[in-house]
C-alpha cells in the first residue's frame, strides 16, 4: 500500500490523469486500427518542434519570475529573424543560421528591457507578462501590415497590404533540421537533426546551470532573501533569466517553424505560451521549481496526447475536438498549478 501511495505522490495527480488518458487513447487507436508507426513519428516530430519553447520556461522559473506568459516576445523576434532572412533571399542552412543570427541579439535586447520592467512589478509577473505579451502581439499585427518587406514570398500578391498571414518556408528552410541525418527505424521516421538540436540546447542550458553564473541565477529564484544575504544581485539574476527565456523563445519558434513549414504571423503567437506552460507543468514543474527533465517529460506527454487524440477523435467525432481537448487540457493544468501552490506569485 505504502509503495503505491509513494509512486502516486511521485507521479502526481495531473500526470497520472494524462498518462491514463494516453493509455486509453492508445488502446482506442489500436482497436480502431490506426497505424501506430505514423503516430510515433508524429510524436517525435511534435516533441522536437515544441521542446525548445517549453525549455524557455525553465530559466524564467529558475530565476524567480515564474511562468513566462510573455513567451510571444521571444517568438516575435524569432519570426522577425526568419522574415529578414527570407527578404534577403537566403536558402537552406544559410537561411536558418541567418534567422538565428538576427533573432538572438534582438531577443537579448528585448528580454533585457522586459526584465527591467519585471523588476518593477515583482509579485505580479505572470499577470503583467500575459498582457504585455498580448499587447506586443497585437502591436506587431500593425507592424506586419506596414513593414516594408518586398519579397513576393512574404507579401500578399494582391488584395491586401503587408505580410501574408502564413508565410511558406517551402523554398527556404522547411524541414531542414527534421531531415538532417534522419532515418527509419521499424517504420518510424526519426527526425535526427531536430532531436539533436533539442539535445544540444538542453545540454548547453544544463551546462549553464552548473556555472557560477547559473547557480547564482537559481539561488536568486529559489530564495530571494537567501540570495540577498549572500551578496547576489537578485534583480540582475532575474534579468538574466528573462533574457535567456526570451532568446530560447526566439530560437524555439524558428525551429518550430522550419518543421511546420510555415511562419505564422499576426494573431498566431497570441496563445503560444499556453501549451508551453502546460507542458512544463505536466512534466512536474511548479511555478517556482523546474528542471530540464520536466521539459522533456512534459513535452512528450502533452504532445502525445494531442498527436494520439487527433486520429482517434477524427474517427469518433470531428476535427475541432482535438483543438478543444488541447484548450481544456492545457488550461486545466495551468489552473491546477495556480490554485495549488499557495501564495507564490
Amino acid at each position: 500500500m505504502m509503495s503505491i501511495k509513494k509512486t502516486y505522490e511521485k507521479i502526481g495527480f495531473p500526470r497520472l490523469i494524462i498518462i491514463v488518458f494516453i493509455i486509453v487513447l492508445l488502446v482506442a487507436a489500436a482497436s480502431l486500427k490506426i497505424p501506430l508507426s505514423g503516430i510515433y513519428s508524429d510524436i517525435l516530430i511534435r516533441f522536437g518542434m515544441n521542446a525548445i519553447l517549453v525549455l524557455a520556461m525553465v530559466p524564467a522559473i529558475k530565476s524567480g519570475i515564474g511562468l513566462n506568459f510573455n513567451l510571444p516576445l521571444g517568438v516575435i523576434f524569432g519570426l522577425f529573424g526568419a522574415l529578414v532572412s527570407m527578404e534577403l533571399g537566403l536558402h537552406g542552412w544559410t537561411s536558418l543560421f541567418a534567422s538565428l543570427l538576427i533573432a538572438v541579439p534582438l531577443a537579448t535586447c528585448g528580454g533585457y528591457l522586459y526584465g527591467l520592467m519585471l523588476n518593477k512589478v515583482k509579485g505580479q509577473e505572470m499577470t503583467v507578462g500575459n498582457y504585455v505579451g498580448f499587447s506586443i502581439v497585437s502591436f506587431m499585427c500593425i507592424v506586419w501590415t506596414i513593414a516594408p518587406f518586398k519579397s513576393p514570398e512574404l507579401v500578399w500578391a494582391m488584395g491586401g497590404t503587408g505580410l501574408r498571414t502564413t508565410v511558406s518556408l517551402e523554398n527556404t528552410m522547411e524541414k531542414i533540421l527534421d531531415n538532417f541525418l534522419s532515418f527509419k527505424l521499424f517504420n518510424v521516421t526519426i527526425p535526427t537533426g531536430l532531436l539533436l538540436s533539442v539535445g544540444l540546447l538542453s545540454f548547453l542550458f544544463w551546462f549553464f546551470t552548473k556555472t557560477k553564473s547559473g547557480i547564482a541565477m537559481e539561488v536568486a529564484g529559489s530564495n530571494e532573501n537567501f540570495a540577498v544575504s549572500n551578496g547576489v544581485d537578485v534583480n540582475k539574476e532575474r534579468i538574466k533569466g528573462t533574457v535567456l527565456s526570451t532568446v530560447l523563445g526566439a530560437i524555439g519558434i524558428i525551429i518550430y517553424s522550419q518543421s511546420f513549414g510555415f511562419l505564422q504571423l499576426y494573431n498566431a503567437p497570441l496563445y503560444v505560451a499556453m501549451p508551453a506552460v502546460a507542458s512544463i507543468l505536466i512534466g512536474g514543474a511548479t511555478v517556482s521549481h523546474a528542471k530540464i527533465s520536466h521539459v522533456l517529460i512534459g513535452t512528450l506527454l502533452f504532445q502525445s496526447v494531442l498527436v494520439i487524440a487527433l486520429p482517434v477523435i477524427n474517427i469518433i467525432s470531428e476535427g475541432s475536438m482535438s483543438e478543444i481537448v488541447r484548450v481544456i487540457v492545457s488550461n486545466g493544468i495551468i489552473l491546477y498549478a495556480l490554485t495549488r501552490s499557495g501564495g507564490v506569485e
Binding site: 539561488v219 529559489s222 530564495n223 532573501n225 537567501f226 544575504s229 521549481h289
Partner: peptide, 10 residues
C-alpha cells in the same frame, strides 16, 4: 530566520 533567509530549502 533560518528557513526564510538562512537556507535554500529545496
Amino acid at each position: 530566520d533560518r528557513k526564510g533567509v538562512g537556507l535554500l530549502l529545496d
